[in-house]
Design a protein around this nucleic acid. Sequence first.
RNA 1: GGGUGGGUGCCCGAGUGGUUAAUGGGGGUGGACUGUAAAUCCACUGGCUAUGCCUACGGCGGUUCGAAACCGCCCCCACCCA
Length: 397
Amino acid sequence: MSDTAAWKTIARGVLEIIEADDLRKKLSKGTPLNIKLGIDPTSPDVHLGFTVVMRKLRQFQDLGHRVILIVGDYTATVGDPSGKNKTRPILTHEDVLKNAETYKQQFFKIVDPAKTSVIYNGEWFSKLTFTEVTKLMSQITVAQMLEREDFQKRYRGGQPISLHEFLYPMMQAYDSVMIDADVELGGMDQKFNVLRGRELQRSLGKEPQVGLFMPILLGTDGKEKMSKSLGNYIGVNEAPQAMFHKIYALPDALVESYFQLLTDIPLESIQAKLAQVAAGTLNPNALKEELARDIVRQYHGADAAEMAAIQEKRIHAGEALPENIPVFAVPAGEHWLPELIVKAGMAKSNGEARRLIENGGVSFDDAKIGDPKAKAMVSGRHLLKCGKRNFARIEAE
RNA sequence: GGGUGGGUGCCCGAGUGGUUAAUGGGGGUGGACUGUAAAUCCACUGGCUAUGCCUACGGCGGUUCGAAACCGCCCCCACCCA
């Protein structure tokens, strides 16, 4: 293929392409390709983990291709078991539609809506007859289904697998047939499903899609994949300062993959800097700052990124407090401190608040509190601090 | 339908009649250290303004001075056989 720059863009960060040769052929046709992404709008809070795939979609668009976003309103009512060790809770159709709207609003922060078609798969699944479903399911055997790692693990580990979960991969495959997908994007956990699409297309005499698999972005804990339920995520809707801080405080080991998957900064430049860090000639924080700035810029603009960077430094130097400290109004007078801490949402119960105090993590107006029975006199404006980065303003009503 | 093994705190997992929110690990939170990261160390990790009271070991009943543990029924899960 002559267009090596385009190929380089497409291949950046990609874990696996099945088959790369097929993709080269498709690209060389010179006509816009159908790039498919299927989503289950289960959790409308889009975080950076999702953006890895979205950014890839955007790169395809910038090269002239068309994105088809399949909203799995029907598949969501089945619940994709991919990568899960449990049956997923089934959503109501109403929830799915509502979530889809929220999802799209965030999706289009990255993906170009002008080059995107949004299609609900209920469009065809609501019309399939039982006979057609039977025919679809006859395309696969139980043994093939159990090849999928997560099914296999659950089966061996004595975890339940509901039969309806077997429908999911075939439904996803059917989507690809219906829209004539050329490329389907997904994480490695989607490999099995995407390959079903490839095979189903082929068996129906269509040109099979190419599977393009992106790595799973690890979360801020550096261990598990980024996910809302694990609380290790960075949301695309987060405020600049919060976003900046989370990226800046990332474990070192994650920096390279974040650069690769979440920015367009040339890989050579990153590798050169990482080498300097390893050699001890560059402070790792400088690299994290560059990363944080770039990502915050993408979602909030250059000015906000600059402000966040300055603010972050001030906070750590102890010169400033974060912006947007939540304010809680209470009646003037004496208040038992644990009660204030709970009110400010820094602890779930009075008991937890007492323990925080006993552990020496609480200060009120810069005075450390050691006694869980302590009371605070509230008149005017006060600063309550729990731990290193949890601040709240307490104001007299 | 028959058989076997299970259901314990956020997760995993000890515990089989008798102080005690219930060993241990993971995770989480706070502190020390540090680069704001990692690693390490220490503390905390059901609720209640609390020398005590309440709630908790799948559910409901029962035995007992006393049960997560014993008995009965029920619900749920896995595996084997059909």
